[in-house]
C-alpha cells in the first residue's frame, strides 16, 4: 500500500517544508518514503509541485496521474492545474486565497480564484476549503499556512498521518521558537 500526496502552489509558499513534515511523520511510522521537489527557476513565482509517497515499497517518487490520495493546494488555480493527479474519490485541501500572477495583472485578466473554487466543488468528491487570511489572522503570522493546510489534510483522514503525528513532526523538525505558532495553527485547523 502506497499513500501519495501531491502538494502544489506558487514558488515561495512553503510547499517544500510541508512535504518534509509529511515525510518525517511517515518515516517515524517506519514507512519507506520518497519525495520529489521543484527547485530552481520555477521557485521565482512559478508553479511548484512536491510529490510525497510512502508505504512498504515505493518505486517512483513522482505520482502518476490519477494516483494521488490527497492534493494539498496552496492556491486555487494550482489545485485545478494538478487535479488530473487525483485518484477517483480522492481528497483536495485548497487554500481559497488566489495568488494573482503578474501576467494576469498586466493582461487585465479577471482571475479571482472563485471560478477555480467552483470548478473544484463540481469536480472533486471531497473538497476542504481553507481560509488562509483567517488562519493567519487568528495565528498572527502568514508563515503558518503550510502547517495549517497539512492539519486539514491530516484531520480528513486522507493523508494517512494523524493530527498528533503531524504535531510531533512539527516539534521535531521546526525550530523551537516557531513551535507555539505552528501548534496553534494545527489546533485551529483541527477545531
Amino acid at each position: 500500500m502506497v499513500t501519495s500526496c501531491l502538494l502544489c502552489g506558487v514558488g515561495g509558499q512553503g510547499t517544500v517544508l510541508a512535504s518534509k513534515l509529511i515525510a518525517a511523520s511517515a518515516m517515524e511510522k517506519g514507512l519507506f518514503v520518497r519525495t520529489a521537489e521543484t527547485i530552481g527557476m520555477a521557485q521565482r513565482g512559478g508553479c511548484v509541485v512536491s510529490h510525497v509517497r510512502f508505504g512498504d515499497k515505493v518505486s517512483s517518487s513522482m505520482i502518476p496521474e490519477g494516483g494521488a490520495d490527497v492534493i494539498i493546494a496552496f492556491e486555487p488555480a494550482e489545485a485545478v492545474r494538478n487535479l488530473r493527479y487525483l485518484k477517483k474519490g480522492g481528497t483536495v485541501v485548497v487554500n481559497k486565497k488566489p495568488v494573482i500572477p503578474i501576467t494576469a495583472a498586466l493582461g487585465g485578466s479577471s482571475y479571482t480564484g472563485d471560478e477555480m473554487l467552483r470548478y473544484l466543488e463540481e469536480n472533486t468528491g471531497r473538497l476542504i476549503v481553507a481560509d488562509s487570511d483567517r488562519i493567519c489572522r487568528e495565528c498572527g503570522s502568514p508563515k503558518v499556512l503550510n502547517v495549517a493546510l497539512l492539519a486539514y489534510a491530516a484531520k480528513s483522514g486522507a493523508l494517512g498521518i494523524t493530527v498528533d503525528e503531524l504535531k510531533n513532526a512539527v516539534l521535531a523538525r521546526v525550530p523551537e521558537k516557531f513551535h507555539e505558532l505552528n501548534i496553534k495553527a494545527i489546533e485551529f485547523a483541527n477545531k
Partner: peptide, 19 residues
Amino acid sequence: EAENLPESPTLPVRPPVLC
C-alpha cells in the same frame, strides 16, 4: 481508464519572474 475531467476555466500562466 483515467477520470474524464471537464475543461477547466482558463488557468493563469505563471512564468518565473524577478522577485
